[in-house]
Design a protein around this nucleic acid. Structure first.
Lengths: 114, 114
DNA sequence: AACCATACATAATAATCTTATGTATAATTG
DNA sequence: CAATTATACATAAGATTATTATGTATGGTT
């Protein structure tokens, strides 16, 4: 687990990345996927995730679709057209940012592909 | 310039990295160095930097030394012994974190050295 | 029966940053 | 030589974003 300050500010971009890759996901699934992809190093808390998802919806970045699994409710999120454009911008900003961080902390711009 | 949310949480670690490399620096110098190293993509604001430096001092991570350049004051910061240990931990956490981000966003762990 | 996993949600509080403002000296430029 | 820009510190109000705690409810496992 990383200190929470490092993860600060990356949540929204992580969500956009996953939605772009997977098409649609629900909240609980997002926390599980991130945990799995990062070997438990990044643990998204519900108190951070749900308000973020609601904000994305309010901003027209995602739409929701509620499904019923037995008597339980699942709320799927997927990108809107605007959301896809937004995600594209945010993701390229993120990779650029990661490269800049690499320059600062590893003294190299790194290679995009090994 | 990156959206400010991305940079959020990285400031303290950036400062520790620079102080570790350079020995001692003053606030204004830090903003200039970061601007230079990142081609202006990361602009540290004074309103964020000075409170951070003061907090580091209050936590015993850095000590200060005031110099007089003509009639102007310059406040140099350098790591304490505890600060060096702290910096070491934070920096390895940061490189680890950057690798994890690379897995998430570029689908590769990347190579530390080209 | 108790516990843990799934699945949503919100509210109080904390941490961190932006934006604005303030003070002052030194250098540059029109 | 007056005005502007750069150097150099600092703080305070407000915004953003996350943590922590709490709440509700279903379903599976021990």
């Amino acid at each position: 687990m990383y200190s929470s300050e490092l993860i600060r500010g990356t949540l929204k971009t992580i969500v956009l990345k996953l939605l772009k890759d997977e098409g649609k996901m629900y909240g609980y699934e997002i926390t599980a996927r991130v945990r799995e992809l990062t070997d438990g190093k990044i643990e998204i808390t519900e108190g951070a995730l749900y308000p973020t998802l609601h904000a994305l919806e309010a901003d027209g970045i995602v739409t929701t679709e509620t499904m019923h699994i037995g008597r339980r409710v699942r709320k799927y999120y997927k990108l809107t057209a605007e959301g896809r454009a937004n995600a594209k911008r945010k993701l390229s900003e993120m990779t650029d940012f990661l490269n800049t961080m690499r320059i600062l902390f590893e003294g190299t711009a790194g290679l995009k592909h090994a």
